[in-house]
């Protein structure tokens, strides 16, 4: 009888186990060895690297020869973005590919979220194509926010806050590095102000509509064209220039890159000299964001102090 009772107990126990075992599949996450930050343009890469220091690894995977604003990453790059701890976006509708790919919302940080009221809306939408990367559009929200150093500073502040929130143990280091960057950006702002001096009203041309924040910050009197430095403008475009010159007697055209010698010569013949102000979409050939912008400030001296 004892044996039977024992068998019954075991049978009951097994039945109870079979019936009531719940499937609890909680997993613990092992501590990460690195913290990866992916960005969508070079200025953000520079800010994140300056603030993050050795505590984070910053990646900007766009190939050097493409405009990151018009770039669409391939699948393997998207997977790298998906695996990132933080993805820092420029905001202001920059990098349209963000809306076409799948990224983890919880990792996204809009660096321009705190400057929405200072973003510049453009009424005109212009589609055009040039170069090997096809048609693209200007208009909507101007996106070269970083060309105003005070807005660049706010973007850097957003990055600092995102990093401090994700890695609170390094918040103090991030804060110190941010303060250094802030000083650099404010010094840059002073340099550009000094370069422009009291001549901001002097008429200038800009070859492409990418300098809106520079114009707004330093109240430049600029008229924008849609010329490419490596593409000879059409006759209609030269006529348009001549027409604009009648009401806007600019002596300088600000370019994104060195224009073709024949373009520069024809402009010169029209009394318009050329100067390069690198918008730093991509990493400069030499130096970094700050040195490139300081070089830009020097270039502006030519325009406003000659």
């Amino acid at each position: 009888m004892k044996r039977l009772t024992h068998s019954l107990f075991i049978a009951l126990f097994i039945a109870a186990m079979v019936t009531f075992t719940a499937c609890e599949r909680r997993q613990s996450h092992a501590a990460d060895t690195g913290f990866s930050v992916y960005v969508v343009n070079y200025p953000l890469y520079y800010f994140a690297t300056r603030i993050g220091g050795d505590q984070v690894s910053v990646f900007f995977p766009a190939p050097g020869e493409v405009d990151p604003a018009e770039w669409i990453p391939e699948d393997r790059i998207i997977q790298r973005y998906q695996a990132a701890d933080l993805i820092i976006l420029n905001g202001a509708d920059y990098a349209g590919w963000i809306k076409l790919v799948t990224l983890p919302e919880s990792a996204l940080v809009d660096a321009s979220a705190n400057i929405q009221d200072r973003l510049i809306e453009e009424n005109e939408l212009i589609h055009h194509s040039h170069g090997p990367h096809g048609e693209h559009t200007h208009g909507g929200t101007a996106f070269t926010v970083w060309l105003d150093p005070t807005l660049a500073l706010e973007q850097a502040r957003s990055i600092k806050m995102a990093l401090s929130s994700a890695l609170p143990q390094y918040a103090e280091q991030f804060e110190q590095r941010f303060i250094q960057l802030m000083e650099d950006l404010l010094a840059l702002d002073s340099s550009i102000k000094a370069a422009v001096g009291n001549n901001a009203a002097r008429p200038v041309f800009v070859s492409h509509p990418v300098y809106q924040y520079l114009e707004a910050r330093y109240q430049l009197n600029a008229v924008s064209f849609h010329w490419e430095p490596d593409e000879m403008p059409t006759d209609a475009e030269w006529n348009e220039l001549a027409h604009v010159l009648e009401t806007h007697p600019a002596r300088w055209m600000i370019w994104e890159d060195e224009p073709l010698p024949e373009i520069a010569a024809r402009l010169q013949a029209a009394g318009v000299a050329s100067v390069v102000f690198n918008p730093t979409f991509q990493s400069p050939a030499a130096g970094d964001f700050l040195s490139a912008m300081q070089a830009n400030a020097e270039a502006l001296k030519l325009v406003y102090q000659d």
Binding site: R25, R26, Q27, D75, I78, Q79, Q82, L100, V101, T102, L103, P104, E105, S106
Partner: peptide, 24 residues
């Protein structure tokens, strides 16, 4: 949904990868 759904429900992949672009 967003990619966060996969993490929230602790869904793991047996093969392939997560959706990468529109239409995946």
């Amino acid at each position: 949904s967003s990619l966060d759904y996969f993490a929230w429900r602790q869904l793991s992949l047996a093969e392939g990868s997560l959706p990468m672009r529109l239409g995946d």
